[in-house]
Every structure is written in structure tokens, then in C-alpha cells.
Amino acid sequence: MPTETETGRGPAVFDIVDESDLIRVRKVLRTEAEAAGLNLVDTTKLITAGSELARNILNYATGRRGRVRVEQVRRQGKLGVRATFADDGPGIDDVDLAMTDGFSTRGSMGLGLPGARRLVDELTLTSATGSGTTVVIVKWQR
């Protein structure tokens, strides 16, 4: 699969430190989804996935903080939105388990990661115990 290239639009980069940043993430993703020509359903899915991932940072990351980077990308003539969520948190011991529906270490429904994966076209999770977690999602225009 050819890799995507940045179009130069964006990037929007900011820290996720409190709940108001959930709203900021949703706003930026909506703006970028519309700019990339995503339809309403895909826009809604991308925003919702981003909201879940930003909340993961507030719930799990060390110091409850992390960073997000949102930018427009292009692959084979198609525009998309790529969002990168990174934290310096404790990392995820078992990535496969964390991607399993219903798994949670906090008594939530455990839908965050597996749910977010279903809502986007691509989700890549990189993590190691003690060295933080990075989740990259991409949603393409149809």
C-alpha cells in the first residue's frame, strides 16, 4: 500500500490536558473532515473516534496529558484526514487485549480502542510498557 503524503494543510497540533480539549479535538476534526470532502457519516465517525482517543489520554496517560496532531493527507489522488494521538503514559502491556471489545482496566465499557478502529479506515497503535502510546487514525474521502 503506498503511503500517504501531507498536502500541507494543517497541521493543527495541540496538547490534550483537560476536558475542554475534547471539544477542541472534535472541532478541529470536523473542520478538517469537511475540508477533505468527507461525507456527513464519515465526518461523524472520525469525530467520534477522535473523541474516544482523546478521552483515553485524559483517562490513562501519565499526568492525564498528551498531544494530538491533525493534518490533511493524500494517497492516490484521494484526500483524507490523519490524526495522531500521543502520550508519555504507562503504555499498554498487551496491545491485542487493549484492542478487544469489552476489555477495560477502569470499569468502562472498553469500547474506546476497538470502537475507534471500526469507525476509521486505518488505526495504528504503537506502544510499549513505560514508553507511552501513539495511535494514528486515518479517514479517507469516498
Binding site: T44, T48, E52, M109, L111, G115, R118, L119
Partner: peptide, 15 residues
């Protein structure tokens, strides 16, 4: 519930 929201909730897996 907006149609786009309904579709998203079902795929997200919210019961």
C-alpha cells in the same frame, strides 16, 4: 437521534 449518529453508535458498539 441523527442518522449519522445512529450509524456511528452502532459501529462503535455502544449497546
Amino acid at each position: 437521534i441523527q442518522p449519522a449518529v445512529a450509524i456511528t453508535l452502532v459501529e462503535l458498539g455502544v449497546p
